[in-house]
């Protein structure tokens, strides 16, 4: 078979990441030069779509073989997948509610935040998604070493994100939680999101440890798949939260 650059799933993961990074830069440029919330929304939807399709493999939800034995691993795996997606649908409503509250309280204005920090933590999360995908793909391809290394890097990047948000941004923000709608919106959105990143890190530590002990095989690694899909979900939330906090509208003086 001709070596197509998108045949290799690892290579595909890399290309998707590069496109995501490019789109983030495009998004930033949009904010700088256009100030159009519509363009930012389109960019965010494009990024979210890429993650949903290429990292979260949403297509697997619909390619279900109904005919196989109910008690088989494969059948239960598909059921588990459905359960995870239902969970994420439910969780989206919390983030949706926070987003609507942000729009209700601040409209087309945004909090005064450090753009470099914002880009920094966003990059950490984006790169972590690349490595999370790499971890899952490696394991599915039989490369346990790469899985472990990539999972470990993902953990580090996740911790970096938490430090960046809670440790740096929260300390350096020119406003506190009680300071007007800025404080309300910024701390609640980043707080809820960071909590989910934290739970993702816990999940990652669990699969890393179990992975070290050889618990996962090419055929049976649902926990790893679930961890990866959840991690990407948390990334998708940030794909919408980042422009909502840093890019749209005008800064409140």
């Amino acid at each position: 078979m001709k070596a197509n650059k998108t045949n290799n799933p690892l290579r595909l993961g890399l290309w998707v990441f590069l496109l995501l990074a490019l789109l983030t830069a495009v998004e930033f440029a949009f904010a700088l030069w256009f100030g159009s919330w519509l363009l930012l929304l389109l960019a965010a939807l494009a990024k979210a779509g890429l993650v949903l399709v290429y990292y979260m493999h949403i297509a697997k939800l619909f390619k279900v073989d109904e005919s196989i034995d109910r008690e088989s691993y494969g059948y239960k795996l598909a059921t588990n997948r459905l359960g995870l997606w239902l969970f994420m649908v439910s969780d989206s409503f919390i983030f949706g509610g926070l987003m609507l509250s942000r729009l209700n309280l601040m409209g087309l204005t945004r909090p005064e935040l450090d753009q470099a920090l914002g880009l920094g933590v966003t990059s950490l999360l984006l790169v972590s998604s690349f490595f999370m995908n790499r971890a899952e793909t490696s394991l599915a391809g039989g490369d346990r070493r790469a899985f472990l290394a990539s999972a470990f890097i993902t953990i580090l990047l996740g911790i970096g994100f938490i430090i960046g948000v809670l440790g740096v941004e929260w300390q350096l923000a020119p406003f506190g939680p009680g300071d007007g709608p800025q404080g309300t919106v910024f701390y609640s959105m980043t707080g809820f999101h960071a909590f989910h990143v934290f739970t993702g890190i816990v999940f990652l530590v669990i699969i890393f440890r179990n992975g070290l002990r050889g618990r996962y095989s090419v055929e049976k690694h649902w926990a790893v798949e679930a961890c990866a899909v959840y991690w990407h979900f948390v990334d998708v939330v940030w794909i919408f939260f980042y422009p909502a906090l840093y890019l749209i509208g005008t800064v409140v003086p």
Partner: peptide
């Protein structure tokens, strides 16, 4: 899905460019 990626990527960038152009104009 994998083979279609270059098309998907191109499509997204084209769409965004068109949208940006529309906003500009």
């Amino acid at each position: 899905m994998e083979k279609k990626f270059p098309w998907v990527a191109g499509g997204i960038l084209l769409l965004l460019a068109l949208a940006a152009g529309f906003v500009l104009v």
